[in-house]
Structures are given as structure tokens and as C-alpha cells.
């Protein structure tokens, strides 16, 4: 049984829905018929990333496991929690650690906020890797999707770099070990090692991990890398559309050819 609102409510809703303001925002009625279902996909900024119709095969959970979407959603959560964290954090070697402590102890839900940001970051690295495995094992990288695969690998690298740069920010023991190892690896890059290390942690090649490193990692973490990753994500999504949606198995018929061998006929 469907509950019907009392007539007065329906009448008021009707007035609201036919008002100029409402119709300037929702340009179509509720998507309960095919026309409106198509229109809403065109009309909404967020929904228009999707096609109006999709293939049944790509809706199967066991095909994509939703991994790409979950990675994207984790990135959105990371952006939101990250921006809130920025209100409570100063990237200074004398303040950063105390700021994190204060966040955990004096700010309502501060600790949950920090935990969410941390665990979402770890999860995202894992999920993006698994998404890559999904695409590989279903052959989703094949023509015309080659370039989206290449972009994807770069997004995997960016995701780990985002996670790594964030790792330094609490300025604790864990952070400093990680960055020390990272800068040691950078330093052994053939030919340009010292330069890379200098670029990463300080103005001079011999500088130790300190304020310069913290500030650099901070700017990379909250500005440069997220912007680049968002650009690549939207390129990735746009490319999925341009490549004709998600990959699908070809429906092929087998017909015996003259030489007796089986060939594939489209």
C-alpha cells in the first residue's frame, strides 16, 4: 500500500513544483518516466558524467565490483575530511604534532575525523590497486581503452604519493622514519639523486629532514597532488564515455570456415 499525502499537502507541493524558482532548478519532473529519466541525466552537472543508458553487463557487481567508483568516493571523503583537518593544523615542526594531539583530545569528533582521513587514505591505495587488477583481468585495457589504462597507472602513482606526503604531516616517529627512507631512496637515483633529494626535503642538497621538508610535503599534499588527481580522474571518466562506456564481451558467432578451422565472425 502506498501512503498518499493529504490533498492539502499535495496541492501545496503542486504549487511549489510549478513555481518559477523550483523549475529554474529542476528542469524536468521526477524521473519516473523514460523522458524524464533521460532529461535528468542531461540536465544535472553531476549526473551528466553518466550516459542516459548503460549496458546490462556493466551493471553486474561481479564485473567491476564497483572498485573504481569506491576509489573515487574515498577520494571525495578524503577531500572533505582533509579540508576540515586543515582548519586545525599548521605545517610547522614546532606546532604540527601538538595540533594533532589537540585535535584528538579537545576538538569534538576530532579523533574520528583524523581516523577517517587516515583509514580512507590507506583504503584508497588498496582499492585503486585492486581496481587496476580488475581492469587487467577483465581485459578492460584493450583498444580503445589503452590510454585510459596509462592514465590509470599514473593515478595509482599519484594516489600513493598523496598517501605518502600525508604520512609526514603528523610529525611523529612514524612520519620521520618513512620520510628518511623515502629521501634515502631518492638520493640513490642514478645521476640526479642528490638533486632529487634536495628538491624533496630541503633547499640545499645536504639539508636534513626538517621544516622545509614538512612545508613541501604539505603543499604537495593539500594542493598540487589533489588538483592533479582530480584533473586526471575527470579525464579518466570522460575517456570512459569517449571509449564507448565500459568494456564488454563481444557477442561472437563461431562459423566453420573453408579450411575447417574455426574463425570468429563478428
Amino acid at each position: 500500500m502506498i501512503l498518499k499525502p493529504p490533498p492539502i499537502v499535495e496541492k501545496m507541493l503542486g504549487i511549489v513544483r510549478s513555481s518559477t524558482v523550483w523549475r529554474s532548478f529542476w528542469r524536468q519532473g521526477y524521473p519516473s518516466n523514460d523522458e524524464n529519466r533521460a532529461l535528468i541525466m542531461f540536465n544535472s552537472l553531476f549526473l551528466h558524467l553518466h550516459p542516459v543508458k548503460v549496458k546490462g553487463h556493466t551493471l553486474k557487481i561481479t564485473y567491476t565490483w564497483g572498485l573504481g567508483f569506491i576509489a573515487f568516493w574515498l577520494f571525495v571523503i578524503l577531500t572533505i575530511t582533509g579540508v576540515v583537518l586543515m582548519f586545525f593544523y599548521v605545517p610547522s615542526t614546532t606546532r604540527a604534532y601538538q595540533d594533532i594531539q589537540a585535535l584528538e583530545t579537545t576538538i569534538p569528533f576530532g579523533i574520528v575525523l583524523r581516523n577517517m582521513h587516515r583509514w580512507a587514505a590507506h583504503l584508497m591505495v588498496l582499492i585503486v590497486f585492486l581496481h587496476m587488477c580488475r581492469v587487467f583481468y577483465t581485459g578492460g585495457y584493450k583498444a580503445p581503452r589503452e590510454w585510459n589504462w596509462v592514465v590509470g597507472v599514473n593515478m595509482l602513482v599519484l594516489t600513493s604519493m598523496l598517501s605518502f606526503t600525508g604520512y609526514l604531516l603528523p610529525w611523529d616517529d612514524l612520519a620521520i622514519s618513512a620520510i628518511k627512507i623515502g629521501s634515502q631512496i631518492a638520493a640513490v637515483t642514478p645521476f640526479i639523486g642528490q638533486w632529487v633529494r634536495g628538491l624533496m626535503i630541503g633547499a640545499t642538497p645536504t639539508e636534513e629532514v626538517g621544516q622545509n621538508a614538512l612545508l613541501r610535503f604539505y603543499v604537495l599534499h593539500v594542493m598540487i597532488l589533489p588538483i592533479v588527481l582530480y584533473l586526471l580522474i575527470f579525464f579518466h571518466f570522460w575517456r570512459i564515455r569517449k571509449d564507448g562506456g565500459l568494456s564488454l564481451p563481444e557477442k561472437t558467432a563461431e562459423e566453420p570456415a573453408d579450411n575447417g578451422k574455426k574463425v570468429l565472425v563478428n
Binding site: 583509514w119 603528523p170 611523529d172
Partner: peptide
């Protein structure tokens, strides 16, 4: 339910027993 780690404050000169990169590295 699970708390994100926060160790002691960083001291670049301290010798640490265990020095590890984040798990994915």
C-alpha cells in the same frame, strides 16, 4: 573503533629501532 597511530614527536636525530616506510612501499 580503530585509532590512527600517533607515535612520539619526531626528532630527526633520534636513532629509531624500527624504521619502516608506509606499508605500500
Amino acid at each position: 573503533y580503530v585509532r590512527a597511530p600517533l607515535r612520539e614527536i619526531a626528532d630527526p636525530d633520534k636513532v629509531q629501532l624500527v624504521e619502516k616506510a608506509p606499508w605500500y612501499f
